[in-house]
């Protein structure tokens, strides 16, 4: 699939795959208008409102101690959750794409399940498990183990919500690639782990990175599920998205939007990295 096939240099007269210029232009305008309305403007408004009182107020909102504590908790949560889901994604993809076994379809459905569960329901699930009235809560609390309303619950719900993201990237990729190289490596006498790290892993690394980026973005941005289990203690169990809500509730709109820009920038950074990866992948695929 080289891009050249469709370059504007293609014959202008009656290409069977091209629409009349007027139609083409109308379609482009419609699509761009839709994207501008639903993607660009919401993004823009965050930055405009964050800077409406000037850069000094902006910087003050970001450097404020509660904001810093929230950022730290968010980073810590991601640092716990992303590697765990990375391992899980690799294991699940390896099991699903390299072996045949009964119940495979069910397994794939289960891997996807958290994706369709409402974040609020996800939070509720963990309240039912670890709440003082829950399944394990009383037993754990009696032993001084605190899960709900502290970082373990935040990490758990975040892991739940972002669980499918790495696996979903890897499964189709590994399915498409097949396992000839892995088998060749084994035939040549490589140990299983060596084969895995030297052959299997490098083959999927870009897809893996893609999944990790997405997982990271979602882990840092999760709101509904974390809101149910966090307890909203300032400086202790508030993540950045929750901090945005608190500021908003305190009439500090400019500060709320300022902190929101941090999260928006994170999202944009993720998108940029993904675009870079995409470009690299396609170049390799074409080569």
């Amino acid at each position: 699939m080289s891009e050249r096939d469709r370059a504007p240099a293609a014959p202008r007269w009656r290409d069977p795959r091209a629409e009349p210029p007027a139609v083409r232009r109308a379609l482009i305008v419609a699509a761009v208008a839709f994207l501008a309305l639903f993607l660009l403007l919401p993004l823009l408004v965050v930055f405009v409102r964050a800077l409406e009182k000037g850069t000094a107020a902006y910087l003050a909102a970001i450097a404020e101690p509660y904001a810093r504590a929230a950022a730290l908790l968010t980073l810590r949560t991601a640092a716990l959750v992303v590697p765990a889901n990375l391992l899980f994604g690799l294991a699940a993809a390896w099991a699903v794409t390299r072996f045949e076994f009964r119940g495979k379809n069910l397994l794939v459905t289960l891997v996807d399940a958290p994706f369709t569960v409402s974040p609020v329901v996800a939070g509720l699930l963990f309240v039912l498990l670890f709440g003082a009235q829950g399944l394990f809560g009383p037993w754990l609390l009696a032993r001084g183990v605190k899960i709900l309303f502290s970082w373990p619950a935040i990490a758990l719900v975040t892991a739940f919500v972002t669980m499918p993201l790495v696996a979903r990237q890897l499964i189709p990729l590994m399915q498409a690639q097949g396992s000839d190289e892995e088998q060749a490596a084994l035939t040549l006498g490589a140990s299983p782990w060596r084969m895995f790290f030297r052959v299997a892993l490098p083959k999927v690394r870009w897809g893996l990175l893609y999944g990790v980026l997405l997982c990271n973005a979602r882990a840092m941005g999760e709101f509904g599920a974390v809101s149910v289990v966090s307890g909203h203690i300032r400086g202790s169990t508030n993540t950045l998205p929750l901090h945005v809500e608190i500021l908003y509730d305190e009439y500090q709109f400019q500060a709320a939007f300022a902190v929101a820009t941090l999260l928006a920038l994170l999202g944009l950074l993720t998108l940029a990295a993904q675009a870079l990866l995409d470009w690299r992948l396609r170049r390799r695929g074409g080569a």
Partner: peptide, 18 residues
């Protein structure tokens, strides 16, 4: 094309206030 994924990457609370 790259921005199409924004709703995946933008935290929902930010989307909400925006």
């Amino acid at each position: 094309d790259a921005l199409v994924d924004l709703p995946f990457a933008l935290p929902t609370a930010v989307a909400g206030i925006a």
